[in-house]
Design a protein around this nucleic acid. Structure first.
Lengths: 356, 356
DNA sequence: CTGAAAGCGCTTACAG
DNA sequence: CTGAAAGCGCTTACAG
């Protein structure tokens, strides 16, 4: 049996080493020695700045030596010297949001192409996200950040925060990356209208980001244009969780005359509405159509499967990252909003004429 | 309008500065100057090593000066000098797994107490997770890692990888943090038996981690002990996604005699089973009981809501982190597995006597 | 095309 | 209880 001593021998003042692993990390100097070049050349090779500086033959020698030693540049040394971390933060209000995984994945994939790492940050217990963000920025742990469905307070000027891009949120002076929620809402509500529904109620999310306001106003506009009166098409807002949505849907479904369709701000809310319909023994889609929004796993897993409007989540994350990279270069421009796709499934059908 | 120039003036060779923010980050030296102490004292204050080294009065002065300047220690400088990143990696096979958000949250909260950050790493496009992990470790970006539901290949010795803890996975020589899956399975299957079911089929996940094997063997053991023959209680394995689960459940539900209950390895698989029951017009729970496993959002959002066994996800993450911290100190011990909790909901009921 | 050297902002053993 | 100084491993302008 091998007993790993970590003690006396390792306590030399100037030579900190990774605990427990036994072997010392190799450095650029080690690689340089083995390859017979200077340490600067090694650095050039690993930062991809060889063109016109290092010959192909020397580069090959360096890479070979590095592979032999299992060398990777020390991220912190590089950050410290170069003044950038090549890491950006993705600040989210709730890590457990099912949509998020795909946004993060898209951002990470796009980041990988540019040598940038995406760190997921949930402000959580700290007082507020702005503090968290400033801390990360001041600690030089990140070079910039994406705020997902969080709006900066009006007091926060873009220059206070360092390079920042809003994803599914809007604020004066910040570049935004958005879904085309108006078009998505038009697709969803238009589809319900085409099926023959008129009493299309709205189960909305009671959250500040404008992405939700846009759904509401567009829904209202389309119904008005179709000649549906506001009294026929009620609206209830719910907190962004299953149980609040279930309660709000109960309200909507107790109205007389009862809505024949529910347009929900998110799949999560639609899942809550499905629970309410089940509670009240209202068959879906025979007596009630339910439309989700987002196209998460939840819309597929629901019974019946939810008709929804699919958001290109990975693309949103990737576009967010690319826009942030531009903002870090001082070129902050908001790209075109990303189109959404209607996905008709089993939770929607033409309205049935009332039985009585 | 303010035009932010980033150019000439900033191009001095020795003085890299954060782009676009206008103001230079303040350093420990700035704080020291303002507080009238040495830079070393500032460092002592911020690394919490003041006791018996810095007087309360001086500490207060330093903190005040730091607050005025908005100072935060430079994370990379600290990492470089101290030889540890105070960051650990959480390696996961699939970022979008709904269970994961809670595990990560638990790990992050526990980490915060120890000044440790948890970075979420999805190996994704890279060749394999081991490469990703070694890269992160070699780049000194992380000090250790948790592998969530991933088993290291038999060839990987614990010493190759640096400090590593397995979460919901087991391998020779690595400390493991586990759910008490045997107890959870006993709760689930015991509950179905008590309801009066005998033909309890198993819809299993076709994945390597032993956590799944444990469910299968425990299910089989309990049925055998209850006198239920293997032919009465069939088993089908499915890939870990909704559609595979749906297909596998179709298989189980086409058998004669049909199982009266399905014990599923995860809520996701149970949701697929629910879809299959719906496809086949088998009412749940009247003609078929379905048990999930995990207690994710999916089990709540399903219609009917899924009876399940709740895994303490946040606690699992927190315990994983604490165990990793111990492993980094050379004290690698596997804690007791975490108990799971039966949550009876609407997808289970006593079996109905066959109609014919 | 390559090398020598400065210095990023910290931490820490040591001297006082 | 406090300060001066070394050095972690890089990147980069400059000299050759």
């Amino acid at each position: 049996m091998l007993v790993m001593t970590d003690g006396a021998a390792d306590r030399s003042p100037r030579r900190p080493s990774r605990a427990g692993t036994g072997h010392r990390r190799s450095t650029g100097r080690d690689v340089a020695e083995l390859a017979g070049v200077s340490q600067a050349t090694v650095s050039l090779v690993f930062s991809g700045k060889t063109s016109g500086r290092v010959s192909a033959e020397v580069e090959e020698r360096v890479r070979h030596a590095a592979a032999q030693l299992g060398y990777r540049p020390h991220a912190s040394a590089s950050t410290l010297r170069a003044g950038r971390a090549r890491t950006v933060g993705l600040l989210v209000p709730d890590i457990t949001n099912p949509f998020l995984g795909h946004v993060l994945r898209g951002a990470q994939r796009a980041g990988r192409e540019h040598g940038v790492t995406v760190a997921l940050i949930e402000p959580g217990s700290e007082r507020n996200w702005q503090l968290t963000a400033m801390n990360a920025l001041n600690a030089a742990a990140i070079d910039g950040m994406m705020l997902f469905a969080i709006e900066p307070p009006p007091s926060a000027a873009p220059t206070d925060l360092g390079p920042t891009v809003l994803v599914e949120a809007v604020a004066e002076g910040f570049p935004s990356v958005l879904l085309d929620v108006r078009q998505g809402t038009a697709a969803a509500v238009g589809y319900l209208l085409e099926l023959g529904h008129r009493r299309i109620a709205h189960l909305g999310a009671d959250l500040p980001p404008t992405t939700f306001k846009a759904r509401a106003s567009q829904w209202r506009r389309l119904l008005r244009r179709a000649g549906v009166d506001a009294t026929e098409a009620p609206e209830v807002l719910a907190a962004f969780d299953l149980h609040a949505a279930r309660g709000a849907a109960h309200q909507l479904l107790s109205m007389t005359p009862r809505p024949t369709a529910l347009f929900c701000d998110d799949d999560l809310l639609a899942a809550g509405a499905l629970m309410a319909a089940h509670d009240l023994r209202i068959p879906v889609p025979d007596q009630l159509s339910i439309m989700g929004f987002a196209g998460t796993l939840l819309s597929e897993a629901a019974t019946p499967q939810l008709s929804t409007v699919l958001a290109p989540a990975e693309e949103l994350g990737a576009l967010g990252l690319r826009t942030l990279l531009q903002a870090m270069d001082g070129q902050a421009t908001s790209p075109e909003p990303l189109p959404m796709t209607l996905v008709p499934r089993a939770s929607t059908a033409p309205p049935r004429p009332p039985d009585r």
